[in-house]
Design a protein around this nucleic acid. Structure first.
Length: 217
DNA sequence: ACCCAGGGCGTTG
DNA sequence: CAACGCCATGGG
């Protein structure tokens, strides 16, 4: 909570995730895999322009129609299959109804999401947190980088270990988890990759104000 | 001409 | 399990 307070003071509430609708958010989570958000959002715009940004449209559209639109998001054929799989699953399992989906118990829903082709831990957790409003902390490359640099040593560096570290030390609060992840992304983007603790990096100022992580994240 | 982006999956050792 | 390689890209 100490670190979050510092970040909040610096950046203010980020109001994340950048999407107009929950379905768009979920598709975006798949499209942004290993690609900058900038490029992923280009693909979203292309889908919207083709009037394909909906569960039924995406589930029915022929792959050859979708893939070219995903070009800027990289791995277009792969991702065309993934957003199709997800759309079919969302239509079939929940009748394309976010309320029905969100009514599921969190861990059960997470298992089911992980069963969809192309949805791994991070993507599943993003969907759970930002679309379904489940209190699940999202771990991504930025999180690993930032907290690795802050000297996180006694925590298992894998996904589950890091996630547990946050969820154990923070109150279970959807708004907090949402904004915290957004803060981490913002911080990481302003931090140079090569020398993350150089004088220019906000991460340096942040870490110098902290003795250790004993007070929690 | 590099290097890298808000991963996931299948295949090896 | 880790460590790779792979996936029809675009910007710095």
């Amino acid at each position: 909570m100490v670190i979050y307070s510092a970040l909040l003071g610096r950046y203010g509430d980020r109001h994340w995730w950048p999407a107009e609708t929950p379905f768009e958010m979920m598709i975006g989570a798949i499209l942004t895999q290993n690609v900058s958000w900038k490029n992923a959002s280009l693909a979203i715009s292309a889908l919207r322009g083709a009037d394909l940004l909906g569960p039924a449209a995406l589930a029915d559209a022929p792959p050859g129609r979708v893939s070219p639109l995903l070009k800027p998001a990289r791995f277009m054929n792969l991702k065309a299959g993934r957003i199709r799989s997800f759309s079919e699953w969302y239509s079939r399992e929940f009748d394309s109804d976010l309320q029905k989906m969100s009514a599921c118990e969190t861990n059960d829903l997470r298992r089911r999401l992980l069963g969809v082709d192309g949805i791994g831990k991070e993507t599943a957790d993003c969907i759970l947190l930002y679309a379904c409003g489940k209190p699940v902390f999202v771990v991504d490359a930025y999180t690993r980088r930032v907290f690795g640099r802050l000297g996180l040593t006694e925590v298992a560096p894998d996904y589950g270990g890091l996630q547990y570290f946050f969820m154990k030390n923070l109150p279970s609060d959807v708004g907090l988890y949402r904004d915290y992840h957004a803060q981490i992304v913002q911080l990481a983007k302003e931090t140079c990759r090569r020398r993350p603790l150089c004088g220019e990096c906000p991460l340096r100022r942040l870490s110098s104000g902290l003795r250790c992580l004993s007070a929690g994240p």
